[in-house]
């Protein structure tokens, strides 16, 4: 038990210090633009189809679930607004984070881990370059920036999925479905979604680069790094989801109270 706690604390401490190093590198000597855009492109292209598809079905599922309840209250006109609000505030950012974790997080961790155990990262350092600047920073920023593109795509697809399912399942036409979205999906809801997306992306990018960068022990070590990345990111994303929901709730109350 003590060993597990000690290992957990070491991991948390390591991640925090690693994040600090990444930020310091970002300020001191940012990566080359070409490397950054290359990573943004790679991450976006890698995840665009799965995110789009998952977004479509999430919108459809949310619509079906809400439709069942709202039919009883005769409030089907609000179906589009409520389904979209839930997706923007909660399901969208969470979905993007899980998608990226499974695909990009695992890939990044395996790629960096392999470079670590084959001493390629030591070689970069030995050749006078900074591995944090060369390898970590472009991947880190790539994940964070791509997550916004993917969130936008996921949300558009979820509205599209919801519209189709609303028409097919609850008889709500497209115009009616879209009508209440602007009134229910308020600016705080959108900001909440964006903040969550940003925080999840930071968590994911830090954990997967840290686990890959510190992998040891050959192929087995790389495998363990990938598994740890998948597990840690899922757990941390859920924890940070609770934390951001909690904090945004307090922030909204404070702002409304002040008004």
């Amino acid at each position: 038990m003590t060993k597990v706690a000690s290992s957990l604390l070491t991991d948390i401490g390591g991640c925090v210090l690693f994040f600090k190093d990444i930020m310091r590198t970002l300020i001191r000597k940012p990566c080359r633009r070409v490397d950054f855009f290359d990573q943004v492109w790679k991450v976006t292209v890698q995840s665009v189809s799965t995110t789009g598809m998952a977004g479509f079905f999430v919108g459809a599922i949310m619509t079906v679930q809400f439709a069942l309840q709202m039919k009883e209250f005769g409030a089907l006109g609000f179906l589009g607004g409520l389904a979209t609000s839930a997706t923007v505030r909660e399901v969208g950012p969470l979905l993007i984070a899980f998608m990226l974790s499974g695909k990009v997080g695992a890939f990044t961790s395996a790629e960096l881990g392999t470079m670590r155990v084959t001493e390629q990262i030591d070689a970069i350092r030995c050749l006078g370059a900074d591995p944090l600047q060369e390898m970590i920073l472009p991947r880190f920023l790539g994940i964070v920036v791509s997550s916004f593109f993917l969130l936008t795509l996921g949300l558009i697809m979820s509205i599209f999925g919801g519209m189709i399912m609303g028409a097919a399942f609850a008889g709500v036409n497209f115009e009616e479905y879209l009508r209440h979205i602007p009134t229910i999906v308020t600016l705080p809801s959108v900001l909440n979604g964006i903040v969550k997306c940003f925080v999840f992306a930071l968590v994911l990018a830090t954990i997967c680069t840290y686990k890959g960068f510190t992998a040891t022990g050959g192929a087995k070590g790389v495998g363990q790094a990938v598994v740890k990345t998948a597990v840690s990111t899922m757990v941390c994303i859920v924890i940070f989801d609770w934390l951001t929901s909690f904090l945004s709730d307090i922030t909204v109350r404070v702002v409304l109270g002040a008004q």
């Binding site: 084959t118 001493e119 390629q120 030591d122 070689a123 350092r125 030995c126 050749l127 006078g128």
Partner: peptide, 15 residues
């Protein structure tokens, strides 16, 4: 570091 060079045991070439 720019004044140093190293050959690694397993070469550590960028594959």
């Amino acid at each position: 570091r720019c004044r140093m060079g190293m050959l690694f045991q397993k070469n550590a070439l960028f594959d």
